[in-house]
Amino acid sequence: MDATVTSDDGVTRCGWAHSAPEMLAYHDDEWGRPLHGDGALFEKICLETFQSGLAWITILRKREAFREAFARFDIDEVAAFGDADTERLLSDARIVRNRAKIAATISNARAAKAMVDDEPGSLDRLLWGFAPPPREAAPASYASIAPSTPESAAASAALKARGFRFVGPTTVYALMQYAGLVNDHAAGCQLAVAVSPGDRS
């Protein structure tokens, strides 16, 4: 896949943005844009948990179903899920029905709740505290980007220490890419410069 592709609208984007129709808007409007808020970041942790071992497009296409099934990823509500909810989720054909990932999501909600009940904004601050310095140059291609970094490994360890599961360094790095902690848009993409990973406002 080419590092960048110029679309019919004349805009140059990362090549992967053209892999499926849904990916174009995801690339333009979400990926790499600074994301803040305990709830928003918790949702992304959950979706990355389910993405593990699967293509992201699978999760993107099921995202609205996941939101409906998991109470819009409200931390308090998911933390209160019990056995009946687990069985309900396992029977919901609209989502990825993996018992271990469902259990991890509920467990992660409880870990997140313990953090943010004590100190609202603490999940946001923890993750953004591991944002690396801005890149000196945009990556030449998506394939040239390492699947994990020392920062994602450190963030993974910090989350695990707080009781989170399914948050390995690769999963956390995917979260960091999405949430704008890093800007991995390829050189030549319109967003390689336009989105600033240093924006933590």
Rank of each mutant, 00 (worst) to 15 (best):
A65S: 15
F66D: 09
R67D: 02
E68W: 06
F70V: 01
F70E: 06
D74Q: 05
I75W: 00
I75N: 00
V78A: 10
A79C: 08
A80G: 11
F81N: 01
G82Y: 11
D83M: 04
D83Q: 10
D85S: 15
T86L: 14
T86N: 00
E87A: 12
L89D: 07
L89R: 01
L90P: 13
S91W: 02
S91D: 11
D92T: 03
A93T: 09
A93F: 08
R94Y: 07
R97V: 10
R97A: 07
R97M: 11
N98P: 02
R99M: 03
K101N: 06
A104K: 01
T105I: 07
I106P: 00
I106W: 08
S107V: 07
S107H: 14
S107L: 13
A109W: 05
R110Y: 15
A112L: 05
A112Q: 08
K113N: 07
M115E: 00
M115N: 04
V116S: 06
D117F: 07
P120G: 08
G121Y: 15
G121M: 06
D124E: 12
D124R: 00
L126H: 00
W128T: 09
W128H: 12
F130M: 12
A131S: 13
P132R: 04
E136T: 15
E136V: 13
A138Y: 06
S141F: 05
S141I: 12
S141N: 04
S141H: 04
A143K: 14
S144Y: 04
S144I: 06
I145T: 07
P147A: 02
T149L: 01
T149V: 00
P150V: 11
P150W: 12
A154G: 03
A154S: 15
A154D: 03
A155H: 03
A157Q: 13
A158T: 12
L159E: 05
A161Y: 01
R162S: 10
R165W: 05
R165N: 10
V167D: 04
G168I: 05
P169F: 03
T171E: 00
T171W: 00
V172L: 01
V172D: 07
Y173E: 14
A174S: 12
M176A: 08
M176C: 14
M176D: 05
Q177T: 08
G180E: 01
L181D: 07
V182S: 03
N183P: 04
N183L: 08
N183F: 07
D184E: 15
H185V: 09
A186E: 10
A186D: 02
A186L: 11
A187M: 00
G188F: 06
G188L: 01
G188A: 14
G188R: 10
G188P: 06
C189Y: 09
C189N: 06
C189W: 12
L191N: 06
L191Q: 02
A192P: 11
A194S: 12
